[in-house]
């Protein structure tokens, strides 16, 4: 395979110029409208050994999420609440620019965006994951793999995490004194919200939703906003060395909320 030159810094201005010329005619490289999301496909329960799992495709971008639940100790400051741990790994399978080993700053940032979206929205009712106050709670691990990178890994990861959580099953438990017995029967993870991240890229003066890889490579800025059904925004992250105009903030919010609704309706079909 030839070296990927698309991210070489010297080429970016040339590519950006080409893409901007196209955007000025009102079209995106792949024919989409500025506010058009790529086709989103969601499959759930794809791995039997996980408590919950999902694969999300946004165009050619693929992310999978696996949920594992274990009984563990609560944090001392929240003795009656379950624990949520979210992590995102950029597999070397996904892109020649991803390398195995400790996560770089991009991986750390994306992982924390997805984590914040789930956590700050209080999407999981952690109080209902308490088994023995102060001693035993459910620890929910959400591990996300970015498997194929064609732009917008953050949204794919966030949607995969949410789909896996929504369809996960954890054992019911019986508490006998200090002992916890796992039962055969299962229940879902109690969810209060469905936070959906939507990323908008700014290229020149244009805002485009769900950027493809080539758009991401030349974008000045990306903004991910996670919104809830009620219209509340539960996390925002600007990423990239460009700038935003003040009115962009609400324009991006409106796009994120509208697209978030569309994606939430796909999730609703999962049951």
């Amino acid at each position: 395979m030839l070296a990927d030159l698309s991210t070489v810094e010297e080429f970016v201005p040339i590519q950006q110029k080409e893409l901007l010329a196209l955007l000025s005619t009102g079209v995106r490289e792949d024919g989409r409208k500025f506010d058009e999301y790529r086709k989103v496909e969601i499959q759930t329960s794809i791995y039997e050994k996980a408590n919950g799992s999902a694969m999300v495709k946004i165009g050619n971008t693929v992310a999978v999420a696996g949920v594992k639940a274990e009984l563990g100790e609560p944090f001392p400051d929240t003795p009656n609440e379950g624990v949520l741990t979210v992590s995102l790994e950029l597999l070397p399978h996904a892109s020649p620019s991803f390398e195995p080993g400790p996560p770089d700053e991009n991986a750390v940032e994306m992982s924390r965006i997805v984590d914040r979206g789930l956590r700050e929205s209080k999407s999981i009712k952690t109080s209902e994951l308490c088994v023995l106050p102060g001693k035993k709670v459910w620890v929910i691990y959400v591990d996300i793999y970015a498997m194929d990178h064609d732009g917008n890994i953050v949204d794919a990861s966030g949607i995969a995490a949410l789909a896996a959580l929504l369809t996960a099953k954890i054992p019911e438990v019986k508490v006998e004194g200090e002992d916890v017995v796992l039962l055969e029967s299962t229940r879902g993870i109690p969810m209060a919200e469905r936070p959906v991240p939507v990323t908008v890229a700014k290229i020149g003066d244009y805002l485009v939703v769900d950027p493809s890889l080539s758009e991401e490579n030349v974008a000045d800025v990306r903004v991910t906003m996670t919104t809830l059904e009620s219209g509340i925004v539960s996390s925002i992250q600007k990423s990239g060395s460009g700038t935003l105009e003040e009115p962009d903030v609400l324009k991006i919010y409106d796009l994120a909320y509208e697209k978030g609704k569309e994606i939430r309706s796909l999730l609703a079909k999962l049951g």
């Binding site: 509340i232 539960s234 105009e245 609400l250």
Partner: peptide, 26 residues
């Protein structure tokens, strides 16, 4: 922000805001 140029260079949010509160905040 770059105040004289009126451009935003960092924007993050942890927590829950409505659209109106987002606007108020900015």
């Amino acid at each position: 922000m770059m105040p004289s140029l009126n451009k935003i260079t960092l924007l993050q949010l942890n927590g829950r805001l409505t659209r109106q509160e987002l606007e108020e905040g900015v």
